[in-house]
Design a binder for these strands. Structure first.
Lengths: 226, 226
DNA sequence: ACCTGAACACCGTTCAAGT
DNA sequence: ACCTGAACACCGTTCAAGT
């Protein structure tokens, strides 16, 4: 009876690009990449699917905007750190963003020259420059770092997708355990090496492993170009 | 009038998993990832879409089988080469396979523990072992290499997708040139580094750049673990 | 200017019916 | 056993019609 103002408060909030992107991120986080649908999004925003198109040209742009919104909140600089530390922090930022929003892993790999990745490229580049890498090698060095990050990103996104689809109620440790057991059961002739490192898969830490890869590339960069 | 045998020869070739996968690869290569449709595939095989499901469980399996078929023809070993050379050859094999079949870039990133990638992992692993990397670091070293390869793979696939969609009739050199020009036009304050390496983007060689990244990681591995 | 929702042109997948 | 093709349950996107 007294709900008139209350209800309109919710209803009258006008549709905007910002609200749409926000709702899209929520849908992607909770329902996965397959869960983002113009119909589901419209229902979430209490409108019809056509309304969204007035604020956004299509699904591709919507995914791009969602990725930018997430990645944009991420490029903070730690003052007074070594270039190596800055690169580690930057890379970890991407890693963590993907952990909370696995779908940006797919999205980053999909938009090559587009802005979210270009920003990461720029920041990595400045640190590589600070490392003293000669100009002619800077592009190569940054590309190596970025491609590695993107590879991990894509892998994590795929893992999240598979995890959500197949065993949504198991933890990461449990998942690694089953994978490691499967590796240990492989044909000894064809997969001798993989069998041998199955134990390392079982008790590894994703973040640490990711950072170890970054360090490996950094070592290569400094050994070669410094 | 004398075409009876001729015609039947074509028509009677029975549907098989092999023929379906082959047709799917053809469709993916010529029409891109979006071009692979059960209806298009059925038309290509002169049958109905339902027939395909008798030989293949669904689209995911079909894409997986197509990827395996392409990657499977690729793991040749060069006898009497150093581990470094073997790794380079192996990585270049993946790179070249992606260049002729860009869609496997997406596909490799999508199937983490699945067989095509596991084979590459195994072969890389053997060479890393031959390099003398201690057991506890082998998983990390191979992961770094593989993630880098997958990052480039995804990037190349995305580029091919964008290229086919936007400027299908321009060459790679032309594409790099426009990209480099766009970089050189970026805001000097926000993108100082990227602007500075625009020239390196313009006249770089994809294969060489890819190998330079591999070498950087190899340098890191040997510097740290040998 | 902005929203609505039916309609269009597609998908992947299923399934009764055929051979 | 294997194939056919209509039908189902979805998509993204458009567009006349409303406010």
């Amino acid at each position: 009876m007294a709900t008139r103002t209350r209800r309109t408060e919710r209803r009258e909030e006008p549709l905007s690009r910002e609200r749409i992107v926000e709702a899209a991120i929520g849908l992607l986080d909770t329902a996965g990449e397959r869960g983002l649908t113009f119909r589901a999004l419209a229902e979430h925003l209490a409108t019809g699917p056509g309304a969204i198109y007035w604020h956004v040209t299509g699904k591709e742009e919507l995914l791009g905007a969602a990725t930018e919104a997430v990645v944009g909140t991420m490029t903070a600089g730690t003052a007074g750190a070594t270039p190596q530390e800055e690169i580690r922090t930057l890379a970890l930022g991407v890693f963590d963003a993907i952990e909370t929003h696995p779908w940006i892993g797919t999205q980053l790999a999909r938009a090559p020259g587009k802005s979210p990745m270009l920003r990461v490229f720029e920041h990595l580049g400045r640190q590589v420059q600070a490392l003293g890498v000669p100009h002619t090698a800077q592009f190569t060095a940054v590309s190596a770092l970025l491609n590695y990050v993107l590879g991990v990103a894509g892998q994590n996104a795929a893992n999240a997708r598979a995890h959500q689809a197949h065993q949504p109620d198991t933890g990461r440790a449990e998942f690694l355990d089953t994978a490691a057991t499967a590796w240990a059961d492989l044909d000894p002739a064809e997969y001798a090496f993989t069998r041998g490192v199955a134990d390392q898969l079982r008790d590894h830490d994703d973040r640490e492993e990711f950072l170890a890869g970054i360090d490996l590339i950094l070592t290569g960069i400094t050994a070669r170009y410094q």
